[in-house]
């Protein structure tokens, strides 16, 4: 997401520049005119004072020219700061929306639980004025482990360096909740856990499945890049290079592309 703003920065710079490139061109013309004038003066009479005058005017123009280009540089800086602020606001808003969505999900789950608990009582009691609408097929009254808990336990294991436990935990989570918002993350963390254990062939297969199973996930550039790093770590140089070049080509604005370019450069391969 961050990277998508890059072209905008350029656009910005161009628009900001539109005013000053005109100025610069005009100044350049003026300098040229003055130079001609000066050359003429020199040829005819050596009017010292006049030469001095023109001389000074040229100097002023040149300085203005330089200054306007310097101003342009700092104007771009200012604009960049403004874009960053805007992005920060967006991220904060997204965070709040996410939190609210989470609360909604939790609320919904609580409601379903409540419904499930009310349901069995209903047929027995004759005075059922309040009919609780059954929310679809009622699952078991007592839910099995909350999928979020499974995910969190696996992540806790990852943080503690218990990579085997983390891998099996994330696998359980994906089996239980294949359509969860966190499924792509879980798949990525399995790959990263394998990578941490230096089980590179397994990691390659796992990162591959992140890319094929969740092609629109924000973890895709990372998975692709670490697939490439895995190849390089087991000395499959050609495969590794192809992977890194693929990252640069497919996700040119992701931070991962910069990392891929750096590694390619270390391997003696230039990228545009």
């Amino acid at each position: 997401m961050r990277s998508r703003f890059l072209p905008l920065v350029t656009l910005f710079a161009l628009l900001g520049g539109c005013a000053s490139t005109g100025d610069v061109a005009r100044l350049q013309n003026q300098v040229a005119e003055l130079q001609e004038e000066l050359a003429g003066l020199k040829r005819t009479t050596a009017a010292k004072e006049e030469v001095q005058n023109v001389n000074q005017r040229i100097a002023e123009q040149t300085e203005q020219l330089l200054r306007s280009s310097a101003t342009l540089v700092s104007k771009v800086d200012q604009m960049e700061e403004r874009i960053q602020n805007t992005q920060g606001t967006i991220e904060q808003t997204n965070y709040r929306i996410d939190r609210m969505a989470q609360q909604m999900t939790q609320f919904q789950r609580d409601l379903e639980l409540l419904g499930a608990r009310v349901q069995p009582a209903a047929p027995g009691s004759p005075s059922s004025e309040i009919t609780v609408p059954a929310p679809g097929p009622v699952v078991s009254a007592v839910p099995s482990e909350n999928p979020v808990d499974v995910y969190q336990a696996a992540y806790r294991d990852y943080q503690r360096g218990n990579f085997d436990l983390a891998i099996s935990g994330f696998r359980d989570f994906i089996t239980q909740s294949p359509n969860s918002d966190l499924a792509d993350n879980a798949a990525y963390w399995i790959g990263e856990s394998l990578f941490s254990q230096q089980k590179y062939p397994e990691a390659i297969a796992q990162f591959d499945s992140v890319v094929t199973q969740y092609p629109r996930s924000d973890k895709v550039p990372g998975a692709l890049l670490k697939k490439g790093f895995s190849y390089l770590n087991i000395n499959e140089r050609a495969q590794g290079i192809v992977q890194l070049q693929y990252v640069v080509h497919e996700h040119p604005n992701a931070p991962e592309a910069a990392l891929a370019r750096q590694r390619l450069r270390q391997l003696g391969i230039e990228t545009r």
Partner: peptide, 17 residues
């Protein structure tokens, strides 16, 4: 967020210039 961002930036652009 991208769309929102586009609009916000477009707004910011005009006074800047």
């Amino acid at each position: 967020s991208f769309t929102v961002g586009l609009i916000l930036i477009a707004m910011a652009l005009i006074p800047a210039c």
